[in-house]
Structure formats: C-alpha cells, structure tokens
Write a protein that binds this DNA or RNA. Structure first.
Lengths: 388, 388
DNA sequence: CACACTTACGAAGGAGCCCTTCATTAGTAG
DNA sequence: CTACTAATGAAGGGCTCCTTCGTAAGTGTG
C-alpha cells in the first residue's frame, strides 16, 4: 500500500526525496526556490540539502550573477553520480546509448548484425556497442548503475526468450543470465516495442498522455502499450502480441507492400516495401492500391486495440513510419468507421533511436522507483553510499 | 507524484491513516497489535487512536475475555459512520444494494423493468430500489456518503450516455446530471462490465490477481478490464468495446445459440440461448454444434484481448456463464491454439449480483482514494466532520 | 481466599525535526 | 560612500515520536 507513516526519520527521508525530485526536475535551484517547491521552511531545506551534499547526491554550483541582493547559493542534483546504458538488440542492428542519471545522452553507438548472426556473435556485438559508449564518454563499467536492454520477442519475466520472430536463434535463450554475467550492475530486460512506446511517451509524439498505443509497423508488426502512464507488460510479460491472431490480419499484412508490382525484380526482401511506399507517395495507382490493402489489414488489429483500450494517442512507429504521410490518412479513415472514440493518430518523432531512448527512460524510471518507492521503500540506493 | 514530506502534522496524518487502514483490514484490534502493524510505539499509537476516537472514525469495543494478563482495550473502525449504495441499471432489472463503509451488505432490492421502459420510469425504478434499501436497513438518504451506479453502454467521463445497445432510450441521456439531482451525496458512474470485473476481482473468481479480463457473455457481449489491480477506463471511458469490431465476431456470436433448431418455436428471444445451452449440456449433438460455432466466434475477440493484455485470469460472467461448464472447455481449447501464454479461465462466482457488488466495491475504493490519496490528499473527508 | 504470574496501561523524561523570528552579510544601484 | 535588496545563520519554541518504569487488572493455583 502506498502510505506509511513512521518515526521522525521517515519524515526527513520523505523531505529529502522531495528535494531530490525537485532538483532533478528543475535543474540548479537556489535554496529559497527549493523551499517553496518542497513546502519546507528555509532552515529545514538547508539542513536537508546539507545532508544530501554530504551523501553526494547534490552539489553546490556557482551563484548566478547579476541579481539584486545577496547572491543565493544554488544546488543541483548530481546526475553524473552514475550512468545508465540503454541497448536495443535488433535483427539488423545492435544500438547502445549512455546517459547520466537524468537521462541526458552522452554517447551512442551502433553495431550492424544480421538476423542470422549466431548468438555468441550477437552478444559480442552488444558488448562492443556498450564498450564503445563507455570509451566515447570516458567511463568504465564500474560507473554504470543500470543497463536496460530491449529486444524483439516475448521475454519471460526473468529474461528467457520464449519466442522471437525477428531473431530465430533467440528462442529459448537465457538472455538475462548472459547479460547479468556481462555487466557488473543491474540489468533490466524488456520488449522493444514497449520501450519504444515509453520513449514516445517521454520524449516523442505522445508526450503528456497517459494512455498510449504504440504501433510498430515494419516487416514484423508489434505493439507496445502504455496504460495509466506506465508500460503494460501483462501477467507473463506477453502483452501486445496481437500479431499472433490470424483474424487481426497483422501477420501477413506487409505482404501487400512486398509483392506489389512496382517493386523492381531482385530487390532484397527487406527493401521491397520501401519502393511501394515511395511509389504511393508519388501517386502511382498500383502502389496506392497495395497501400490501401495493407492499411485495410493493419486497421483490423489496430481497431481491436483502440476499441479495447481507448487510448488517447496512437503512435505509428517502426520502419514504415517514415511513410506515415502515406499511411496515416487511410488508417484514420478506416478506424473512424468502427471506433467508438477516435484516438489521435501521430507519427513517431524518434525514428530508429526509439528503442534505445526507451531503454534509457526505462533505466531512469527504475532509479526513480528505487528512490521514490512508495512503501517505505529502500533507503537511498546502494551505489550512492558505495560511491563516496 | 506520490511522495511528499511536510511538517510534523503531515507525519501524524500519515500515521492516523495507517492506523485506520489496519483497523479496517483486520477488524477490532488491541492497541499493541495495532502498534505492531503500524510500526509505531504503543504510546504514539494510543495518542493516534485517541484522536481518531475523538473524530468519530474509531471506537472502543469490549475487551475479549478469557485472556491471560490485563485485558487489552480493543478498537474498531466505525464502518457504520456512513453508508454506500451500489446500483445496477440493467435492461431488465434495476438492482440496488446498501453497505457500510467496509462494503458489508445490509440490504438488497430489485425492480423489474423492460428494455423499452421509458427513461422517467426507469429513473423512478432506480429511486424506488434505493428507497427500498434505505427502508430495509432503517437509514435515510442523509446517511449516504456515496452512490455508485453501473449501467450498460459507453459513458462519457461526466456521465452522459454516448451509446447503449441494451437500453435504446439511454443514448444521449445525461444520466449523471439526473442522478446527482436525485441523491444528496456523491454520485459515481461506471460501465457495468467494468464494475462486474471489479466485483470478481475483490470478492469473486479473480481474487488475488492484478491483471484480469472479465467477459460478459449474454445476449449482448461486453468486457471489463482490470489492469494493475485497477479498473481500466481508457482516456474517454470507452475501453472494452471490442464487440463493435465485426472481425472480432462478437456482435453476432449469440445468434448461433438463438437460431439453433433445439429451441422450441415461439420461445421469446431472451430465453432461446438457454435452451441450446441446456441441450448441449445434455449431450444433444445439434446443440453441441451450435455451441461449438458460438465459441468459435467468441474465441476470436477473446483471443485478441488475451494476446493484447496477457491477463492472469479470464473470468466468464453474464447470463450465459451459468453454462460455463459447457462453454469453458471448448473456449480453452480454441484459445490455447493462438495464445502466447494461456490465462486461467474461470466462471463467475457472483452471478447476477456482480454489478451491484462491483458498484459497492467501487464506492469503497472511492472512499479509500479520498482517505489515502497519495498527494498530500484531502484531510479526513467532510462527512465525518459533518457527522459529529 | 491470598498469592504469584501475565499482560496492558499511563506518566515522565528525552531526542529529532520542523517552524518562526531576527540580527547579519553580501551583493547591486545611485 | 550610502541606501536598498535578498539571502544567510543562529536562537528559541512546539510537536511528534521514542524509551523506560512503576502501576493496574485480569487469570490460575494452593
């Protein structure tokens, strides 16, 4: 349950966390501004801040010059106390990004792989991508607090891959175990569409919403759900797998784009749809018809999601979302025919970095959960006391 | 955000709420047991309890006899400080129930109506049902803190009925406004399937779960979703309306049961399915075939829900759930073919009282939200200070 | 019926956290 | 150099909680 009282120290803890939260949100703040925001008096705020400075969570920054009166001492959250890594293990790329505790990006890398790349080689690519980020930003693995990883497929709650359409070898592989052995810090695993949804929620097309459906439209279809502002995993971490239902007509939908006559002979399968979408944008009637049939199929599963969840925003992401201008209008028309209440349809604004950014946000969330755990929660997390 | 510090009185408030919560959960408790549960020392607990007694939230009960040592004074939450009413406005019945603040039922009534009953007559039936409960339990409208109402159809967030398949006249009607005029207390409105889901979650087949799909199977199909232990409404309060999607094959599914040859000529439409289900239970092959086709259709929309949400439990409720023994095995088979992870399938244990009980639980939740609102929240609610 | 035993009660003394108040300090503006 | 502004730092007081200890109200036994 959420609320718990306790003794006086609990009150101090709450006030410390409150101060940390405000400092994280608003950057450097003078003492009196912080006092206003936390609702504490100035002397109490000072005491709290002094304690946090002593613990290493907060530090003083030079006062801002040119103000009337005695310059106020300013404090900021030490986001450089530790670092977070987000990883996107895709079929064709392994991406990694490194950020500080506020989620500000410091480095990004990419390692090309193939869907058929052997597992060990893929793991090596993951390690190389993270090493690259560490090297670029001058950090070491010991500076990492959390590594959050997204990959295609259904993950069991403890990180075994139950099923993956994109990376056949993944199936049955205990990714969690291997990653935990690889990194000396906390490792989080999540489905890539769900992380993409989180990224759009925090930094992309769905900012400000709490009910969001993220549609991953590409050669493989996927979905990530945000419900009440949080990622929805489901009881067995298997939510969003509506593509498995034949009647939803998602699984074969991309075939309309791949097999369109406008695609030149001998085009590799992964590029075919791009030709059709480009031709449709140029007005080619054959391509437009293929797109129409594609959207017709896409709309069935999508309508099921919208009718069931009634989201505020539906974000179109994944490879095909570069052609959102071609896809969104007919999709909107189709949905309007059956939906009780139309959500807003928007194109992803984050593109290929979606999953990596979502992983970073997921790691930030995890830190927040540790810090602000409602149930009396952990004290300030271990890395802190370890750090200094 | 959840956590906020504050001054000492905030701490006292937290501890008071903590004490109230424990007393509600565990019935009468001696002081030392309460101290253990809240984590406070005995003297502090005493002070908190004295204050709550003064405010009227808590009262002393006679000590339990026959124990060693000096008898401990025991205290209990005064659940009879106010009362809650739950109402189920259905097409054929208006049900009402009255409970104390802990949700313990004190009275129940039922008023028969018809789908075509005029709006004013239906409103009169609501009033009569509630009056009946008040009379049975010797209370007056002034004793009511909250009236929670469930009805079929899609409600706007402020209580206008956007659409209702079961009660045609409902469409466009401002039910919220009329009910607020009818009762001098807080009025809550919610979709009936969602309330049924809540009832099964708290008192029925889904106890202990946090991810539940409630399937209302009857002549009209509906669904209520529990996500993360809470009712999921969606952004515009229109969640769960998957029956509107033709491809989900829910809308016409009951027709398989209604038009089965085993139904005697001239049977009224609302009784037809019962004959088919009864014949299927007896082993009639024609009826079994009709049930098979019905379940085949039912399974499509259901599979969409399960694949999308990955619930722990799927509860079969509504009129047809009396025949769950006939329906569940084939439904389980169908779902197992497509689902990534099978949920548990269970039959409703609450039957026709589902919605009323859900409404009561909804009202109890509302009280809890007021009491335990995480964000510094309201003080103890107004009725209290008004009461004494 | 008196005694020992058990368990809870109630009062006293002390520590921690927060608040308000006020004299002091470090800047800018004229 | 002086007046003004705004933050600082220290002092004093109130509230909530804790621990400790002597007292009270029952049960069980000889």
């Amino acid at each position: 349950m959420a609320l718990r009282g306790g003794d006086l120290s609990r009150l101090r803890q709450l006030n410390s966390l409150s101060a940390i939260r405000e400092l994280r949100r608003e950057g450097p703040l003078p003492l009196s501004a912080l006092a206003d925001r936390t609702g504490l008096s100035r002397p109490s705020t000072k005491e709290v801040v002094d304690e946090l400075v002593g613990l290493g969570w907060v530090e003083e920054v030079p006062p801002s010059p040119g103000t009337m009166g005695r310059p106020a001492r300013r404090y900021r959250f030490r986001a450089d106390n530790g670092f977070l890594v987000g990883v996107d293990i895709g079929a064709h790329n392994v991406r990694a990004a490194l950020s500080d505790l506020d989620g500000r990006l410091l480095a990004e890398t990419r390692q090309p792989v193939e869907p058929g790349t052997p597992v060990d080689e893929r793991l090596a690519a993951i390690e190389a991508a993270v090493e690259g980020c560490l090297a670029m930003s001058g950090k070491t693995a010991a500076d990492l607090w959390t590594v959050a990883v997204g990959t295609t497929g259904v993950l069991s709650p403890d990180g075994v891959i139950r099923y993956s359409a994109g990376i056949p070898d993944w199936r049955g592989f205990d990714l969690g175990e291997r990653l935990r052995a690889m990194f000396p810090c906390e490792v989080l695993l999540e489905n890539d569409s769900r992380l993409a949804a989180l990224a759009e929620l925090r930094r992309g097309a769905a900012r400000g919403s709490r009910e969001v459906v993220f549609l991953h439209v590409a050669r493989r279809m996927g979905a990530g759900l945000i419900i009440d502002g949080k990622i929805h995993r489901g009881f067995g971490a298997a939510s969003g797998e509506i593509a498995m239902l034949p009647e939803a007509r998602w699984f074969d939908a991309p075939e309309h784009l791949n097999s369109c006559p406008v695609v030149p002979e001998g085009t590799p399968a992964e590029d075919a749809a791009g030709f059709t979408l480009a031709a449709a944008r140029a007005g080619d009637p054959v391509a437009l018809e293929a797109v129409r049939r594609y959207v017709e199929d896409l709309a069935v599963g999508t309508a099921a999601m919208v009718l069931l969840l009634d989201p505020e925003v539906l974000v179109l992401g994944g490879g095909f979302s570069r052609s959102a201008d071609v896809l969104l209008p007919p999709l909107r028309d189709r949905l309007a025919r059956v939906c009780v209440r139309m959500p807003e349809l928007r194109a992803s604004t984050l593109g290929g970095e979606c999953v990596v950014l979502g992983a970073i946000e997921y790691a930030v969330d995890h830190l927040d959960r540790q810090l602000f755990a409602p149930d009396g929660g952990p004290e300030l997390p271990a890395p802190l006391t370890a750090a200094r």
